[in-house]
């Protein structure tokens, strides 16, 4: 029995299905129950949150959490499916400090809201950027320019006529 099936036995109401992410056990979790399932995974010994991946599938979003256990030397992946109109899921920052920036990055680039995150602001792009670049409907044709405002903050605009640019 792999780790995903083990989790299903412990939380039959939260796990929708189990399967494989190529060669790693993966469990699909109900989106309301993610925090509970991740907490249970941490109790099972999965102490390393490796990566959080958000994917835009045009009709829905997926968020995938890859865990690893240093004691058991095992992998586990959890996946949640989110509505495209309302991409929201609970934050794991209470369980893993490392989730902080990973969730901010996913918010910044994919536009998924993590409920309960203490400081959910953009991390790689400046505040005020329009759109989330890793969404499939992101507008690639509109150029955006970043300048420094009066108080030192970044100012984003779509008007590049005032910039010093090589013709």
């Amino acid at each position: 029995m792999n780790a995903a099936e083990e989790l299903k036995n412990l939380l039959p109401g939260s796990v929708v299905s189990t399967g494989l992410q190529l060669n790693k056990p993966m469990a699909v979790i109900k989106k309301e129950e993610l925090l509970k399932a991740a907490g249970k995974a941490k109790e099972m010994g999965f102490d390393h949150l490796s990566v959080i991946t958000g994917i835009d599938y045009k009709d829905h979003f997926e968020v995938i959490y890859n865990f690893f256990s240093y004691n058991k030397k095992q992998n586990l992946a959890l996946k949640v499916n989110l509505d495209h109109d309302k991409p929201e899921v609970e934050s794991l920052t209470g369980l893993w400090n490392g989730a902080d920036w990973l969730e901010r990055e996913t918010f910044d680039l994919v536009g998924i809201k993590f409920i309960g995150h203490p400081n959910l602001v953009r991390i790689l792009l400046p505040d005020g950027w329009n759109g989330h670049p890793l969404r499939k409907d992101y507008d690639m044709n509109t150029e955006q320019f970043v300048t420094i405002g009066e108080n030192g903050d970044d100012v984003v605009s779509t008007d590049g006529t005032n910039l010093l640019r090589r013709k």
Partner: peptide
């Protein structure tokens, strides 16, 4: 079609690529 998370021990730590 498929998805994979593959990681190695790079000099700075765990370097992983999630490819779909």
């Amino acid at each position: 079609p498929g998805e994979v998370y593959s990681r190695i021990e790079a000099p700075k730590g765990e370097l992983g690529f999630y490819v779909v």
